[in-house]
Design a protein around this nucleic acid. Sequence first.
DNA 1: TGAAAAGTTTACGTTGACGTAAACGTTAGA
DNA 2: TCTAACGTTTACGTCAACGTAAACTTTTCA
Lengths: 138, 138
Amino acid sequence: MAKAVKNSSTDITTEYSISQLSKEFDVTTRSIRHYEDIGLLSPTRRGQTRIYSQADRTRLRLILRGKRLGLSLEDSREIIDMYEPGKTNIDQLKKLIDAIQQQRSKLNQQLDDISKLLKDLNRAEADCIDALKTNGKQ
Amino acid sequence: MAKAVKNSSTDITTEYSISQLSKEFDVTTRSIRHYEDIGLLSPTRRGQTRIYSQADRTRLRLILRGKRLGLSLEDSREIIDMYEPGKTNIDQLKKLIDAIQQQRSKLNQQLDDISKLLKDLNRAEADCIDALKTNGKQ
DNA sequence: TGAAAAGTTTACGTTGACGTAAACGTTAGA
DNA sequence: TCTAACGTTTACGTCAACGTAAACTTTTCA
């Protein structure tokens, strides 16, 4: 069962089973294990059972957010790695900033695409409703 | 060569070759043919050479916009079909409106995802720049 | 206690979205 | 004229992201 949350910002005690995460995020356990296979998750083990920490859960949420945005798992890996603090090398930091810029511009492109699509949908809907009225009256 | 555009909103004369579209949208001819294979495009033919109309070009643009948003080609097919006028059946219209609602809520979800990601990126970048300053001074 | 539920590994299968190669026809221009 | 450049079809290959099945162990709880 999900433990009571102690609500510390860096919660170290709360644990999750694979099926809990599976239900919470509506994703198969197969997928979750797959993310581990390719190194996107690294839950600890109790015996051979996987134990997911709060941090693991966050990573999973980021992976799924990326999926909703059409990112590949490799793309998500890049982004998720940005959140990791242990990057002391200056060159890596510069590369990171560069990668962030790229992601940002990609996201802005998506924003543009979405606003256009929404406009189109509005028009299409209006046309539909119009057609319904016209058709319904005759 | 691309013909001079007569700038009528329903341009019926302008034509495109497959390589023109390929270059304009930076997509392989293989992909364009693939979209035809699965019925997303239906260019006319001159002999056996494909001739793309303005409408075909628009459909291709919509397909690629969908791709940028992470939609499958089947998803795009649904959306693109919304733009088609020939839906006189009332039931279909209602279904269409429903589908539009669904797409809209999905897009709104994406907007939310993007804004969260952008915030995260901003923080990650700030952290990077911070680390650079600190590291650079010692 | 004993059956159902939940966990595990291994491994082959599938699906979408093309890539790539072969083998061929057509057209434009030096 | 002939050789690029561009077009075509057919067909097998590939890669990511899992699905699915088998065979097994561990936990739970009525």
